[in-house]
């Protein structure tokens, strides 16, 4: 009887889902991630109108329309600045950013680093399937270098990007990895990520059954992290040195203060500003 004392949420997970039907392929991990997100929102007892889901371009970036929250489906790779602008202007909103490995780590790679540094109170969920789906199966930054595809026959030959290592080095305040096959476990990670102040990064391994059917095997590859979450950068870094990419759970919980300049507190009028120019 661990959690019977929890408050019954005002809204069920389904209340956060819109009536728009996803375009994803049946079997896609993103369906389950959508379920994890709505479960986390429900458990956090958030009113849907006080939540915004922001995205860029790609399969996973279709998520905002599938939620019944405020949303913005922006341009490719720019979901993080779009979300940061919203959160800084409207600190009262809970802002979740949804992205994929192409949108988030390739075209949006620079924003990823700087969002980690800036530490605006956002939760960044990257559904990683190591492939571009919307353009029919090209290598992404996290794709294995020898994965054969039409654009780079025989494989890209490029070492995969290591999102958790980058996040840690760039200063993300919360870092975790989940797996779409564990909807409830991922919901728990997301709840914690949203609650954690500052920039929270959650990589979710989310198989692409169309272009990477081999990823169905991931359910046998993932395993719980054997080490507890840490607030120590050195320990987290050492853990990542031996990471096989399939450890799931929370890696790092930082204590940096979130970036939120004050807004709405005027101490002067426009006429005061104009006075500085008057002779």
């Amino acid at each position: 009887m661990t959690a019977e004392t929890a408050i019954t949420p005002k809204h069920t997970p389904r209340d956060y889902k819109s009536d728009i039907k996803p375009v994803w392929c049946p079997g896609c991990g993103d369906y389950s991630v959508l379920g994890s997100i709505t479960k986390a929102f429900s458990e956090l007892n958030l009113d849907p109108e006080n939540v915004a889901v922001i995205s860029g371009i790609g399969c996973s970036s279709r998520i905002p329309a599938y939620t019944d929250c405020y949303g913005f489906h922006g341009v490719h790779g720019r979901s993080l600045p779009l979300a940061a602008g919203l959160k800084v202007a409207r600190p009262d909103m809970t802002v979740l950013v949804a992205s994929g490995d192409g949108d988030g780590f390739s075209i949006g790679g620079n924003h990823f680093m700087h969002a980690c540094r800036r530490n605006v109170d956002l939760t960044y969920v990257v559904m990683d399937n190591r492939v571009y789906g919307m353009t029919k199966g090209q290598a992404s930054p996290t794709t294995e270098p020898d994965w054969d595809n039409a654009l780079t026959p025989g494989g890209s030959g490029i070492s995969p990007f290591r999102p958790l290592v980058i996040a840690l080095a760039a200063g993300a305040n919360f870092i975790a990895r989940g797996f779409s096959g564990d909807q409830n476990g991922t919901a728990k990670l997301l709840k914690e990520a949203i609650e954690h102040p500052g920039f929270s990064f959650v990589q979710i391994l989310s198989p692409c059954v169309t272009f990477r059917p081999d990823q169905k095997e991931w359910k046998d590859d993932v395993h719980d992290a054997t080490v507890d979450p840490t607030d120590d950068l050195g320990r987290a870094a050492r853990r990542l040195m031996t990471d096989d990419g399939f450890n799931v759970g929370v890696l790092y919980r930082g204590e940096r203060e979130a970036f939120q300049p004050p807004i709405g507190n005027a101490s002067a009028t426009v006429a005061d500003l104009e006075g500085k120019f008057a002779l």
Binding site: F72, G74, V75, P81, L82, A83, G85, R90
Partner: peptide
Amino acid sequence: NMAIGGSYGGV
């Protein structure tokens, strides 16, 4: 994009 995000928020 930040400016668009802020304006989407009403500012």
